[in-house]
Amino acid sequence: MTKMVIGLSSCSIDKLTGVGVMLSGAAADDMDVEVFVLVNAARAFLKNNPAEEFMSDTCLTVAEFKSACEKVSTPSWLQFFEMTKEMTNIKINICSLAGKLAGGEKKEDFIDLVDDFCGIGEYLDSAKEADIHISV
C-alpha cells in the first residue's frame, strides 16, 4: 500500500484546505497517510481554539476564501480531515514542541482527530519510508 507523509507547519486555512484536498486524493487511492503537525500548525487542532483564522496567501481575505469555497461546495479543511479519516488510514501526530507552542501539552487539549504526540525523529523516519512526502 502506498504511504504518504505530510509535514504540516501552517495553521492558515488556505494551506489546511490544500492538505485536506491532498488527503482526499489519498483516501480515493486507499493510501496510508501520516500527518505530522509541526510548529504553528498545532494551533489549528486545539480544542476550543481561540485563534483567529487567517490566510497565508493575502490575495484573498478569510471571508473571500470561505465564500469562494462555499460557491463550489468545497468542504472546510476540518470537514476534509474528518471525511477522509473515515475513508482511509490517516494518523495525525502532533509534534510535542508544536503542542507546547500552541498551549497544548496533553492529547485531551486537542480535537479528537488527533491520534498522538510525536518527536521529530518519528517524523523523519516516516518520511524516509514514505512513497510520497509533502511539506506544507
Binding site: 484536498v21 482526499s24 486524493g25 483516501a27 480515493a28 463550489v72 461546495s73 468545497t74 468542504p75 471525511m83 477522509t84 475513508m87
Partner: peptide, 14 residues
Amino acid sequence: RGTACPGPLLEAKK
C-alpha cells in the same frame, strides 16, 4: 455536479 474537485472523486470512491 454541485461539487468541485476532489468532491466527485470522493463521491465515486464511496
